[in-house]
Every structure is written in C-alpha cells, then in structure tokens.
Amino acid sequence: MSDEWKKAWQSQSPPQRLTLDPELLLNEVRRNERQFASTISWRDVREVAVSLLLVPVWVYLGVRQSLPWSWYVVIPALVWVAGFMLVDRARQCRHQPAPGDDLYTSVKKSLAQVEHQILLLRNIHWWYLLPIFAALMVWPVHHAWNTRDNGWLSLAELAGMTFTFLLVFGFIYWLNQYAVRKQLIPRQQELQALLEALAEPVE
C-alpha cells in the first residue's frame, strides 16, 4: 500500500509545480529580500533611536528653561535603556535560526529566542520602567523640596506628577505583559510541542 502511495506521490511533480521564469523570480525574490531586511533593521533602529533622540530634546528643554541638575538625571537612564537594547539585540542576532539549519536546531534556536523575549518583557520593570521612572521622579521631588514653602500646593504637584507617571508606566507594563500572554506564551508552547515531537523516544 505505501509503495502505491509513494508512486502516486512522486508522480505529481511534473503536472503541478512552480512554473515561473527563473530570471523574473530571482529579481522578485531579491527585491523582496531587500525590503524584508530593511523592515527588520528599521524596527531595531527605531526603538533605540527613540531613546537616544530624547537626550538632545531633554537637554534643550533643560537649558531653555534653566532647570536644575535634577532635570538631567533622566539622560543616563535613557542612555542605559538604549545601550541595553543595543547590546541585547547584538547578542540575540548571533543566536538567530539560519536558513539551512536542521529542523531540531531551528526549533531550538527559535524557542530560545522566544524565551529570551518573554524574560525580557516580564522583567521590563527592572531594565526599562524602574530606571526611567526613578530618574523622572528626581526632578519633581527636587522641585517640591525647593518649593516646600508653598506647603500643600507643592505636595499636591508632586502627588499629581507621581500619579501620572505611575499611570503611564503601569499601562506600558500591562501592555507588555499582555503581549507576553497573547503572543509569546502561545508561540513558546507551540515550539515546545514541536521540540518534544522531535525528541528521542524514552526507553
């Protein structure tokens, strides 16, 4: 029976196939590849660039309004976040699955990448939210201290800013945990199932 299936299966090549002019196909594939590569690198650059571009904006605002030293504490935090992202991307690039890897290796590398992404997003409060939040809070606290003579008013200002920042950062945290739950965990489970299906049978 299975010989019959094999014969039938192998007989299908000539009547049903890819029938494009190879020259045309080659051009199209190469064009697509360039687009694909630029999309990926643009996404990487964009995320880091946002952090770095905020640095001159921050300096400009500080100088223009003659703000005290506490305003500039955010800058090292922004540089830290951009640097962290850059180093992490560079390290992860080396572990990407390559076309031509066997299935097991490819699935294993993909799983490692997804797990790393999950770890990163689950700990986003340590490497992203907390450093930026803490740095952002230095200026309002310093300002409230300097204007303490205003009494309740300066305290209310500080409380308002703290609440706003907490709201924004809380939303960013929720958004990232949502992405972990809805996208990364299902993908991790799928890859784990594939890896288990490829595993050596237990005696």
Binding site: P14, P15, Q16, R17, L18, T19, L20, L25, E28, V29, N32, Q35, F36, T39, L103, S106, V107, S110, R187, E190, L191, L194
Partner: peptide, 24 residues
Amino acid sequence: LAWHRGEKKRRSTQTSLPAIEELP
C-alpha cells in the same frame, strides 16, 4: 513550520508573486 506558527507578516507588505501554476 515557522509560517504555520502565524508569521504571515510578509503578505501584507509585499507584492504577490504568482509562484505556483497548476497544470492540467
């Protein structure tokens, strides 16, 4: 297998190339 995992990201952004022709 990767495509099957729902990574159909290229279709929305790139032109379609009529790759497969079913011959009679």
